[in-house]
């Protein structure tokens, strides 16, 4: 056995371990987000707060769109197309930022000078749960954007190849996962139940 094939075998082994580790992490995180959903249904039942439907629709659309650009980036590196890869990552990060701005500036009203929000975390149980769910999700989006920035920087410097791009793969799966979580959160926050006044 030559050292090259031995190294490759080691890499394949490690890659399999990494994949399993990442999916176990997602299972674990599912319990975190599930816990937040449990909290939402326990406290709100069949009601929901009056949230801005336009903002909700826009940020959801933006986040879904970002999954496509992320997928584009990953496919590109698999084919060795570095330009599209970097471009796709950049678009994803920008869309992620737009999502964050939508949530933090408009839904939260973090900067009242720009936009006055509807809810405060300390108002009542509606404010509390909205901020807990969107806050925990936003934390994951932020970490995802940082992740993308690191991968983008490494890719710019010539890192990753069609054969070896676990960094890209994990970044992409993580981003899709955070996206999927929002697909559960969006109806729970914006659609299910009657508006409580």
């Amino acid at each position: 056995m030559t050292t090259v094939t031995a190294a490759l075998e080691g890499y394949t082994q490690q890659l399999r371990n990494n994949r399993m580790g990442l999916w176990l992490f997602f299972i674990s995180e599912a319990f975190l987000f599930g816990g937040l959903l449990v909290t939402r249904f326990y406290l709100w039942g069949n009601t929901r707060p009056e949230l801005d439907q336009t903002i909700g629709l826009i940020v959801t659309g933006v986040l879904l769109l970002s999954s496509f650009s992320m997928n584009m980036a990953e496919t590109a590196i698999e084919h060795g197309d570095r330009r599209t890869f970097l471009g796709g990552l950049a678009v994803t990060a920008v869309l992620g930022l737009v999502f964050l701005i939508g949530v933090m500036v408009f839904e939260w009203g973090l900067f009242p000078a720009i936009y006055e929000g509807h809810l405060k975390p300390g108002d009542n149980v509606y404010g509390a749960v909205v901020f807990a769910m969107t806050g925990m999700h936003a934390l994951h989006v932020i970490s995802g954007i940082i992740f993308i920035a690191i991968v983008w920087n490494l890719g710019r410097k010539g890192g990753f190849s069609p054969e070896r791009h676990w960094g890209v793969e994990s970044c992409a799966i993580y981003w899709h996962y955070v996206d999927v979580v929002w697909i559960f959160f969006y109806p729970a926050l914006y659609l299910i139940g009657t508006v409580a006044h």
């Binding site: 149980v125 404010g127 509390a128 901020f131």
Partner: peptide, 10 residues
């Protein structure tokens, strides 16, 4: 945040 505070609906 009133998750567990009955005065806030928690």
């Amino acid at each position: 945040m009133g998750f567990f505070d009955p005065d806030k609906g928690g």
